[in-house]
């Protein structure tokens, strides 16, 4: 594990591994794009067909990245949280991390299953085709289609909460929370929390 050590003006928050940080920011950009494209495409006429194909292609990419991230998370311990994370908040961090991984895994799978239940071939860019993962069934389609929207809203909420929490920690408490996931390193934190 690639722990980046600062100088001796501890406490320097440990960073996530380089791979973890790359995967994190890659999925952040992809998931944000996917949510926006998803909301736009269901309301569009002229761009609908192009956006849907883009959405399906990117969805498969997100699924692949999330699977790698889950494997990566299970084999690597996260760096310790700063002391500014209280007991209750530690619980919230743990629960929301599991929820976020679960949503990121479920959403592309629900999308893929949903297209399968409509009996439409799952075709991506370049005419690449995926197998169906669910039986053709309009009732099931309806349930999965609704679920896909609900999961999208849940992702918007939990990602917003995640970003807000990191911003509050980094700006107000100045505990270097964001630094655990960024690519600037080698310097000591500008402000270490004092108590």
């Amino acid at each position: 594990m690639n722990i980046v050590l600062g100088d001796n003006t501890a406490p320097t928050p440990q960073q996530f591994t380089r791979l973890t940080r790359i995967l994190h920011w890659l999925s952040a950009v992809l998931v944000f794009t996917m949510l926006l494209v998803g909301f736009v495409m269901v309301n569009s006429l002229g761009d609908y067909a192009t956006l849907v194909r883009f959405h399906k292609t990117l969805g498969v990419l997100v699924l692949a990245i999330v699977v790698v991230r889950i494997a990566n998370r299970l084999t690597h311990r996260a760096p310790t949280l700063p002391a500014t994370v209280g007991r209750l908040e530690r619980l919230a961090v743990a629960v929301s991390e599991v929820a976020l991984y679960a949503l990121l895994l479920a959403q592309p799978l629900v999308g893929w299953a949903m297209v399968s239940t409509s009996g439409t071939p799952v075709i991506l860019f370049g005419s690449f085709q995926l197998p169906a993962i669910a039986p053709v069934d309009a009732g099931l389609y309806s349930a999965l289609r609704t679920t896909h929207s609900l999961l999208a809203y849940a992702l918007v909420v939990i990602i917003a909460a995640h970003v807000c929490a990191v911003l509050l920690h980094s700006v107000t408490l100045r505990d270097g929370m964001l630094r655990r996931m960024t690519f600037r390193h080698g310097k000591s934190p500008a402000t270490a929390p004092k108590s």
């Binding site: 908040e89 700006v171 107000t172 408490l173 108590s195």
Partner: peptide
């Protein structure tokens, strides 16, 4: 701030944090 490990914050930092959160939201 008992919920944040007893860390001390001043008003300016609190306002900056709220501004960051508000801007993002």
């Amino acid at each position: 701030t008992p919920g944040w490990g007893g860390a001390l914050i001043d008003r300016r930092a609190a306002l900056l944090g709220l501004a960051a959160v508000g801007g993002f939201l």
